[in-house]
Design a protein around this nucleic acid. Structure first.
Lengths: 210, 210
DNA sequence: ATTACTAGGGGACGAGTAT
DNA sequence: TATACTCGTCCCCTAGTAA
């Protein structure tokens, strides 16, 4: 998605020490020769400062180079929307999650991620599918592995740490299902309906934890 | 800086209405023919859904396509330092962590947080105390509870999900100890020294996960 | 060791055009 | 009108190698 020049700019920005064309070539999956040529180009464009050392090169971005990265970041930010929070409405529904939460193998691991044993039921929240995708894409992802019990196999679950009204909880996504189309399932060590007084149709704001 | 495919993905993401290859060609400064070909490629890669209309095309990003954009945005944010990053130098250490990692009770829970069983040793990194505080304050926190074994009691551990050089790992902080001052201990399902070639004095950049 | 020049090959691009 | 196929050109990349 990024051009090789873009990849190089990004690498160079996070460098604190001198490097070599060979190292950069490895990091960016292009040849040493290409790195050499591209660095010459970037320097000619005024995006980087290149200083040859006895052993390798000292590279640093110019403010112009930094601007290139910053403005691209801004474009992406804008395209993705702000996305720091996900809002939706509570929906009564048979959470597939409730079923999963009855399995000891999942429960134990979710307990670690939640800090306490999960309440045996999930809160279903109806959200915008696209907002959901961008929101989740920015959160750290934990995978709760699947298992077999001799009868059948149970697939892995993805867990995203979030919070609702200041209470830590998590979004669970059974990996196998073709994503619950605009629905998220929240799991927590407490009963959402009682503790937070939530029920059918209530607006809920889900935020990244912390 | 973005490849033409990247430009197209970005345009398509912000589209709400059908469009034509000619319009996209103008917007991206490539030929209509190239747009046509690239859209076919993007669809084949599963990044977009392309539906021909009588007049033009209906284009939409798949969640995979959206993820491509979102993860690029995250990379740029990190590169710009907005996402927070903590740098320091590897220190050969006393390895209090190694002791903890020998306890089955901690190991199991760390395995859930790491996605695999922890390597029985930690990487100690010397950092700026204040930078450490602000960095950790922005990360989600997981608490691994303590326990007793009849002999003595073992205190809880705080776990922060981070990544080093693209590898998911975690910062562990024994809650009780105060002598962490400017030192962080990294735990991972692999051997830092071998896998990342890190040793005494090496510079390490610790980033928020994702 | 390094960087970087030269030569050659492959892939991306666009003009023309079928549909 | 559209999209998209064919094909010739050119650009970018890498291998070899000089410095």
């Amino acid at each position: 998605m990024l051009t090789t020049k873009g990849e190089l700019l990004l690498r160079i920005n996070s460098l604190k020490e001198p490097t070599t064309t060979v190292d950069l070539a490895e990091a960016t999956s292009v040849s040493q020769q290409s790195v050499s040529r591209l660095l010459i180009d970037l320097a000619a464009e005024g995006l980087i400062i290149k200083k040859p050392l006895v052993h390798g090169l000292e590279l640093r971005l110019t403010s112009k180079g930094l601007n290139v990265i910053a403005s691209l970041a801004a474009r992406l930010e804008h395209a993705l929307g702000k996305g720091g929070r996900l809002t939706g409405k509570v929906e009564t529904g048979i959470g597939e999650g409730k079923y999963y939460l009855s399995m000891e193998q999942y429960k134990e691991k979710l307990a670690v991620l939640l800090g306490a044993s999960p309440y045996p039921g999930t809160l279903n929240v109806r959200v915008e599918e696209t907002e959901k995708e961008t929101f989740l894409a920015r959160l750290p992802l934990f995978e709760v592995p699947g298992f077999e019990d001799g009868q059948r196999t149970y697939g892995p679950i993805h867990f995203y740490p979030v919070s609702v009204a200041g209470h830590d909880c998590g979004i669970v996504v059974p990996v196998r299902t073709s994503h619950g189309q605009g629905l998220v399932e929240l799991v927590a060590p407490f009963n959402f309906r009682k503790t937070l007084g939530l029920s059918e149709g209530h607006e809920v704001a889900i935020e990244a934890r912390r």
